[in-house]
Design a protein around this nucleic acid. Sequence first.
DNA 1: TATTCCTGTAACTATAATAGTTACAACAGG
DNA 2: CCTGTTGTAACTATTATAGTTACAGGAATA
Lengths: 136, 136
Amino acid sequence: MVNSRFSVAIHILSLIATTSDKSQLTSDFIAGSVNTNPVVVRRMIGVLKKAGLLTSQSGIAGYDLLVEPKDLTLLAIYHAIDGPEQLFAIHDEPNPACSVGRKIQHTLEGVYTSVWYAMKEQLQAQTLQDVLDQLR
Amino acid sequence: MVNSRFSVAIHILSLIATTSDKSQLTSDFIAGSVNTNPVVVRRMIGVLKKAGLLTSQSGIAGYDLLVEPKDLTLLAIYHAIDGPEQLFAIHDEPNPACSVGRKIQHTLEGVYTSVWYAMKEQLQAQTLQDVLDQLR
DNA sequence: TATTCCTGTAACTATAATAGTTACAACAGG
DNA sequence: CCTGTTGTAACTATTATAGTTACAGGAATA
């Protein structure tokens, strides 16, 4: 199972999208909703900011989305947090002297790529707005 | 990224399927092809055996598949090694006092389920025989 | 200006997953 | 017996993840 960063990122973005009172929207407040540490939140927000999904100003409470929820696909969020394009790890340096070992990496890459594409399609089909609609 | 057990399992099963000289097929030989420790191989084989995919006899070299490669889907292998049905972790105990926190877990479960189904379909569509064909 | 609240970030710690390793009991067959 | 093998428990090393402490610096305001 992959880590919970993707979940936390979606949670944070949902809060930013739905909280109208910006002065309330501090990393401390967000951390209280996510149930984690404010630094973990600020760290994640730094990543999302770097990816161009939101803005913030040092010293001032509040964050703003730079992309409309309906235009923000879950795939874009996934990429923002640097989610891997390969779901399954492939073991290192299988034996090239063995006919299976020689070709297994390339073969598995093909298999995993088809799996990843199917996943990708799902992530692209859903936006932050869809998530917000379900949160109501 | 998920661990490499799935890759190792497929590698091991491929070797068992393609090695005709059973006396050669020891955990040591397999470990040499995978490039890992024989105990790691025996451990994994124990798991696959428990799932009913192969047999072995204590003290005797050689393993035998119990399912025809063409009938063995990658999904079955994935399930055998207890691959999680949920790809992404969801953070624990979001704040129920917050409207987002209250519903985020359920919402994300729905999102991740649709992603998992797409993945599942791909894993079910490919068999060990497909892998063997590509290894040639 | 001093105070307060906030962001941004570095550095450290704790925990858990993963894989690798050592060790050894038990089985098979010459 | 002796050798080579499987099956398993137990331990270690490495890494990823998340949580935490600490603090520099911006912004607003009394």
